[in-house]
Write a protein that binds this DNA or RNA. Structure first.
Lengths: 231, 231
DNA sequence: AGTATTTTTATTGTTGACAAAAATGATTAC
DNA sequence: GTAATCATTTTTGTCAACAATAAAAATACT
């Protein structure tokens, strides 16, 4: 599973199990929202969450601040917090920004790392994913996409970019899952990524960047066609 | 004038319970940080701020959360909050992302609005700013840049983009001011912006986008050359 | 004197209580 | 039966007190 605890700050937790970390609660809620375990429109009650996690309302509240700043929830004064509903227009904005930023990550990664370092991903996207996609084993494909994405933002070596892409990713995780299921999208995405990885393997940053943009444009087009179904 | 209610809300009243708004405190602190009224490295003590604004520490703390998420302050557990110091590498990351996002804003604005709507800015950047820059009246130039920027993000009509650019802007406000002072930068920026506005006035979104990128690249180059002085 | 240990102080972290607001439900008038 | 008004309950907003941690100062020891 692609569990991503952001930065492994797992030090000295001798007092309480793990709710010691202040980020802990934020991460839990973020995951629940991103997975639609808490679907858009859900109301988040402070007291319930406080009790569920055995912490005080203050900490829940603090967690809310972070989630709000990231656009995952909306807080209406005196009325509480609600999971943000992604409108079609916002989704398109996310695509537009994501296209630019992920493409930048691709370019930077390609420039920063030696071409050989992509070999394993090239191979992963060859037969293994060919098989997975043909068998409609999309979990494997989605996992591979997450791995690729992690490698890209890591290779870009830019904390700022990482933060922004994380924020975007949190808001589009469900969308990506739903898009991949649509007819032809997984296959098309696979081939787009193969082309991109080939360019990266060849050290051609410009071309890889361009191909990543094409990839996201393709994803966006699929979204536009099927937006009635995926939102 | 299209008022942007976000920044610039400077309510004076010290004692009056204007502090009702929850964003109020955040905005005040954000402005202080962006203006280097609180320079990088400053320690923010919760109790001092609480007393200064006549509120409780809880609210200061809540404000801190937002500032931290935006990267304006860093919170070290049990040691408090410190205004983030902008390193050269981070500044360059900001330039890279800003180049993409502001260029996107330019393109979207140009596409969204009729060409005539830029006429006033074209004129503003013609004689009036020529005069201002020649006389080294840089406050006027900086104000014009802020106006231009506001019009661009407004015209882009994308809340997401607005949020991201605001966040970037908060972290670079001082930098911009210091760059403009450097020899030749204001002149060069003026002409870059004239070219860009001409393209927008002509409705050529692609070209305008390209020129905006060139503009920020120029700004970045100036920064690289003088980074020892501006950081 | 210099270093280690302890005490003191200052600051942050956490909690529960209380106040304010909104949502809910009941009662009454029409 | 419906709508309006009022009381009740739930939920959020705010605060001040207490606990935990780190920094600073003072003391003791070699």
């Amino acid at each position: 599973m692609a569990t991503k605890p952001k930065s492994g700050t797992q030090r000295k937790s001798r007092k309480t199990p793990d709710q010691a970390s202040p980020e802990f609660l934020t991460n839990i809620l973020r995951d629940r929202i991103a997975n639609h375990d808490l679907p858009p429109g859900s109301k988040l009650r402070e007291s319930s969450l406080a009790e569920e996690f055995g912490v005080s309302r203050s900490r829940v509240r603090e967690a809310f601040s972070g989630l709000e700043e990231r656009g995952l929830i909306e807080r209406i004064p005196n009325r509480g917090a609600v999971v943000t509903r992604l409108e079609a227009s916002q989704a398109l904005e996310l695509f537009a920004v994501r296209e630019l930023l992920e493409a930048l990550a691709v370019r930077l990664s390609t420039q920063n790392l030696p071409p050989e370092s992509w070999q394993d991903l090239v191979e992963l996207f060859d037969e293994p994913l060919e098989k997975a996609v043909n068998e409609n084993n999309l979990e494997i494909y989605i996992d591979a996409l997450a791995t690729l994405r992690a490698r890209l933002v890591e290779g870009a070596n830019s904390p700022l970019l990482l933060g922004m892409l994380d924020s975007i990713y949190d808001r589009t995780r469900v969308l990506i899952r739903r898009l991949v299921i649509l007819p032809g999208r997984a296959r098309q995405g696979l081939e787009e990524h193969r082309a991109m990885l080939a360019a990266m393997r060849a050290g051609d940053a410009e071309k890889a960047e361009q191909l990543k943009r094409a990839n996201i444009q393709g994803s966006r087009e699929t979204f536009r066609k099927f937006q009635k179904f995926v939102l």
